[in-house]
């Protein structure tokens, strides 16, 4: 067995989910290689070389890899695959990995497997279907297994103790069919949603985008990230990148506080692996209470400021 992990990074920093993917890859065997493609990624290469369990880091640098466009990365991965004949190719089930891996798989004429949560054996994987309402165990008989990994289902590999060898990979001529223009990332001083230890999320019960301030105040006291249900996103209260759920982000923090969220199936799929769940909702029959460890049936507009006050002490 030999596995290629396609690293997700910002040239300066490895995106945390890559460490979860490396852990998943190690379950398949010791031969774990990572591909770092970028424009100027010496820093990331240094970081990933230290990750426990990584044997080899393949580095490809070229201006065409700006923005990590799938049209440019796919030929590079195919060339790498031709050279090293990996048995498995994987990446995180993030916007990056979901965009890239199916393109690679189709070019290899293999069926990829998305968003796995468990590896049963080198050819058998478990993934969720129907927004987490069922678990599907899939056996893959393809010559090379291409899959994306749900970050919250695997521990992060440690960034210490590793001593991977480094190998340059020659960049390929640019495909040139797509062009990366810009990225507008939501600026926030709060922790990132998918890796935060505490998440405070709001639903339609918040009634407006302005009222999310109540959640930001509470989140600041808990060093928490702020998320939202799809209902709150659809209602235009907050941007889509805050959405927790099957079609948004999957989170599994130590503490998840659901405020004014009824608990639609697709939302539960995005947060039910949280270690402790707190629900604040004035409707005692809201389904969110069925998954919550602690619930308060009360008006959120009273309870949330009260919590923030109490935490100030």
């Amino acid at each position: 067995q030999s596995t290629l992990v396609v690293a997700e990074h910002t040239n300066d920093k490895l995106t945390p989910i890559t460490l979860n993917v490396i852990s998943a890859a190690r379950k398949l065997g010791d031969e774990v290689s990572c591909l770092v493609a970028g424009t100027n990624c010496a820093k990331v290469v240094g970081e990933i070389s230290k990750v426990q369990g990584v044997k080899k880091v393949l580095v490809a640098q070229h201006d065409a890899y700006k923005g990590l466009l799938p049209e440019e990365l796919t030929p590079l991965i195919l060339a790498t695959q031709k050279q090293f004949q990996f048995t498995h190719i994987c990446a995180g089930a993030s916007a990056f990995g979901k965009n890239l891996l199916p393109r690679v798989a189709a070019k290899l004429d293999v069926a990829p497997i998305s968003d796995i949560i468990e590896i049963k054996s080198p050819d058998t994987f478990v993934r969720t279907i129907y927004a987490g309402n069922a678990l599907s165990t899939v056996k893959c008989s393809e010559s090379v297994k291409v899959f994306s990994v749900r970050g919250t289902s695997f521990e992060a590999a440690l960034v210490e103790g590793g001593s991977a060898t480094k190998e340059e990979v020659l960049p390929l001529p640019p495909a040139g069919m797509s062009e990366w223009i810009e990225q507008n990332l939501t600026k926030s001083n709060r922790p990132e949603l998918t890796s935060a230890k505490v998440v405070v999320s709001g639903g339609r019960g918040l009634k407006s985008g302005d009222n999310f301030k109540l959640l930001y105040d509470l989140a600041d006291k808990l060093n928490a990230a702020v998320g939202a249900s799809r209902a709150a996103v659809d209602a235009g209260f907050v941007p889509n990148d805050m959405q927790v759920g099957q079609t948004g982000k999957i989170v599994a923090p130590e503490l998840y506080i659901a405020v004014g969220i009824s608990g639609a199936i697709q939302h539960l799929a995005g947060m039910k692996d949280s270690k402790t769940i707190v629900a604040i909702n004035k409707d005692p029959d809201a389904p969110i209470f069925q998954v919550a460890d602690y619930g308060i049936v009360a008006d959120l507009f009273k309870v949330v400021p009260e919590m923030t006050e109490a935490l100030k002490k």
Partner: peptide, 14 residues
């Protein structure tokens, strides 16, 4: 304009 993990990204395609 694409929805990515941290916000939005713009690409131009042929």
């Amino acid at each position: 304009v694409r929805e990515v993990d941290g916000g939005l990204e713009t690409v131009r395609l042929r």
